[in-house]
Amino acid sequence: MPEGDSLHRIAARLQPLVGHVVSASSPNPRGRVTGVAAAIDGRRLESVEAVGKHLILRFDGRVLLRSHLRMTGRWTIGPAAQTRRGSPWLVLRVGAVEAAQWNGPVLTLEARVVRTLGSDLLADATEPVALVARLRRGSSGRLLGEALQDQRLVAGIGNMWMSETLWQAGLSPWLSVESVDDGELVAALTWARDSMRAAVVDARPQRAVYRRTGRPCSRCGEAIRARGQGDENRTAYWCPGCQRGPSPVAR
C-alpha cells in the first residue's frame, strides 16, 4: 500500500496542473460511475495536497476530490498520451500534461474522512512531541505497531514505515504503547518523519526488516520475523534479537 511519502511525491508531481483549467474524463466505466470527471471537467485546479495516505485536489466552486490508493491504485503523470494502454479511472489534462489515476479504488467527491485523521507526519507544522500526546490519549492498551498505523492518531505511516521505524528505534511492534517512554516515541517519530520526507525527493532507504522474513538482521544476525497484527491483520516485521519487547511465534 502506498504510504505518506508516496502520496506527497504524487502531490508534488501534480503541481504543474495547479492554477489551470482541467479537462477531465473517465475512460474506465468504474471511474465513470463515480461522477468525478463530470463534476471537475472544465474547472480550475486550485491546489493539490497529501494528507496521510489521501490525496486531496481542490477545484474552483468548492469542489473537492479525494483519492485513496489502498493496495491497487496508482497515479501516472507525464506527456499527454496519444495512445493509452488500458483504461484509467480518471484522466486530468492540461495542455500537453496528463495525469491518470488507475485502478481506483477510492475516488470520491466526499472528503469527510479526512477530518477524522491525525496530523500528517510529513507536514511542516507537525511536531513529534505533539504526536506523542495524541498517541497517549488514543491508544490505551494497544500495541505499538498497531497504534502507529492508526491514521486517526498519526496520518501517513503504513506497515512498511512502521516496521522500519521500530527496527531503527530498537522497539518491538508487540510492545504496548504504555511501556514505551516519551523520549523513545519522539525519537521514533522523528526518524520516521525525516526519513519519509527524504524519500519524497529521493529513493527510500534500504529495508532492514520489511519483507525480509527469515533473513538475518543486519544489526544482530537474528532471523527477521513477520506476523499479522491488529484487527486488520497488517503484517509486522521485526527482529526478536535487538528490538526490545515481546516476540510472539512467527507465522
Rank of each mutant, 00 (worst) to 15 (best):
M160F: 07
W102L: 04
V132W: 11
R142K: 12
L148Y: 01
Q82D: 14
T116K: 08
T83M: 12
L148G: 06
V114H: 07
V97S: 09
V132A: 11
L148W: 03
S119T: 11
R142N: 05
D120L: 04
L143C: 09
Q101P: 06
W89T: 12
Q82I: 12
R93Y: 09
L153D: 13
V129A: 15
P88H: 02
V114M: 06
L122K: 03
E110W: 11
R136I: 13
A147Y: 06
R85G: 02
A133W: 12
A125W: 06
A123N: 13
L117A: 02
E98F: 01
R137E: 14
D124Q: 05
V129W: 11
A130E: 15
A123K: 03
E146N: 14
L92C: 01
A96C: 02
V154S: 03
Q151I: 08
V132R: 07
L109T: 08
G86S: 09
G145C: 07
E146H: 15
Q82K: 15
G156Y: 00
L109G: 05
V106W: 00
G145S: 09
R134N: 15
V94P: 01
R137G: 07
A100F: 07
W161L: 01
A147V: 02
R137C: 08
G138E: 14
L148N: 04
E146G: 11
I157E: 06
V91E: 14
A147D: 03
L107Y: 00
G118M: 08
D150M: 08
L122H: 02
I157Q: 05
Q151L: 07
V113E: 14
P105M: 01
T126E: 15
A111W: 09
S87T: 08
E110G: 06
R84K: 09
V129L: 13
L122M: 12
L144P: 02
V132K: 05
V94Q: 04
V91K: 10
L148A: 04
G118Q: 10
